[in-house]
């Protein structure tokens, strides 16, 4: 018995030591090959096909590490000059803006990118660029709401929507960026009124996911909500006759709020030339088609049309506010929502 225990212990320790040593050597070795490394908060199933296409075309291998925004940014910061990341890819303009303020990116002066991606979707100092566009707009039940009743985000704060509105939690970055844009257009005071009205009109605790907003409208818990366009796109792809429709908000004023997913080349990239190549590729027609096909998003590129399905939703005017503003106003927007009890 005693012998047995000892033998087990020694097997365990050999196992542990070997794991430890391989892990150290693996991490040291990984630093020295010429593939590209991407840190991404966009999920694996949405980025892998893009990188595969890039590798097929150029022969340059791409490794990636997915993670949560705030945590990944800290990691790149702490890795400093020795970071393995050549590209940082994330969703939401506010996150890109914040990464830029933390000195994570280097400016990229690429004519290709400037030609492909319109101005308002890029950082003014060329630190990052948007790569796909999602509209955050109004969704409504076709059974209980007529599109004539709808107009703007601000209008959803009015009395007629009392007990009929579903919103996503203020903790999600998409909500923060939308409210940031309202602050930009209308100022703090007016936006406070709007948020207060929204909270009054809620039919349910704000939802964790846009998908839940849509199922709640279908179940009759509420009649209208605000969602990112691609969530509806995915649902419609599975159920073409679903009793929901998108309404393009604020067409007569500021345009519908759009947000982006995007990327920038890191300041301490070991291989900035290839990193720029990857970024240029991601803005190209070929990659933009993959973006659109994978996730029912709008292309960021001016050169291609949206996917057939989302083209059916019709054209709309985008809010042309430069998206770095969404980041700048974010702290104000969160304070405001927390003060007004928007959970």
């Amino acid at each position: 018995m005693e012998y047995k225990v000892n033998k087990k212990v020694s097997i365990f320790s050999i196992l542990v030591i070997s794991i430890l040593s391989t892990s150290f050597s693996a991490s040291v070795m990984a630093a020295s090959d010429d593939s590209l490394t991407v840190y991404s908060t966009r999920k694996e199933h949405l980025i892998k096909p893009l990188f595969d296409a890039f590798t097929n075309k150029t022969g340059i291998k791409v490794k990636y590490l997915t993670g949560k925004g705030g945590a990944l940014i800290e990691r790149i910061k702490l890795e400093g000059k020795r970071t393995k990341a050549d590209l940082f890819m994330t969703v939401d303009a506010g996150n890109l803006w914040y990464a830029a303020t933390q000195n994570l990116f280097q400016p990229v002066n690429s004519e290709t990118i400037k030609n492909n991606i319109p101005n308002h979707l890029r950082d003014p100092a060329n630190l990052w660029t948007g790569l796909s566009v999602r509209a955050r707009t109004i969704i409504y039940s076709t059974d209980r709401v007529s599109p004539d009743e709808l107009s703007t985000y601000q209008d959803l704060a009015n009395q007629q929507w009392k007990g009929r509105l579903c919103l996503r939690t203020s903790k999600k970055v998409y909500t923060k960026s939308l409210v940031s844009s309202l602050i930009h257009h209308d100022g703090l005071e007016k936006t406070t009124e709007v948020v207060r009205g929204w909270v009054d009109n809620l039919a349910a605790t704000p939802h964790a996911e846009d998908v839940h907003i849509m199922t709640s409208i279908l179940a009759g818990q509420c009649d209208v909500g605000i969602v990112n366009s691609y969530y509806f796109g995915r649902m419609q792809a599975e159920e073409p006759n679903v009793a929901l429709k998108l309404f393009w908000a604020n067409q007569d004023s500021t345009g519908t709020h759009v947000n982006i997913s995007g990327a920038g080349v890191t300041k301490h990239s070991k291989n900035p030339e290839d990193a720029i190549k990857l970024l240029e590729f991601l803005s190209s027609v070929e990659a933009q088609k993959i973006y659109v096909g994978l996730n029912k998003e709008y292309p960021a590129s001016q050169k291609i049309k949206a996917d057939n399905l989302i083209a059916l939703w019709g054209d709309f005017n985008q809010d042309k506010m430069n998206l770095s503003v969404a980041g700048k106003n974010q702290a104000d927007s969160v304070s405001l929502m927390q003060r007004e009890g928007y959970k």
């Binding site: 430890l20 391989t22 150290f24 693996a26 991490s27 040291v28 590490l65 400093g80 020795r82």
Partner: peptide, 15 residues
């Protein structure tokens, strides 16, 4: 010298 690059992203640190 810094040990960040050895430890960050290593199995050891995760363990």
């Amino acid at each position: 010298s810094s040990i960040n690059h050895i430890l960050f992203g290593s199995v050891a640190l995760l363990l």
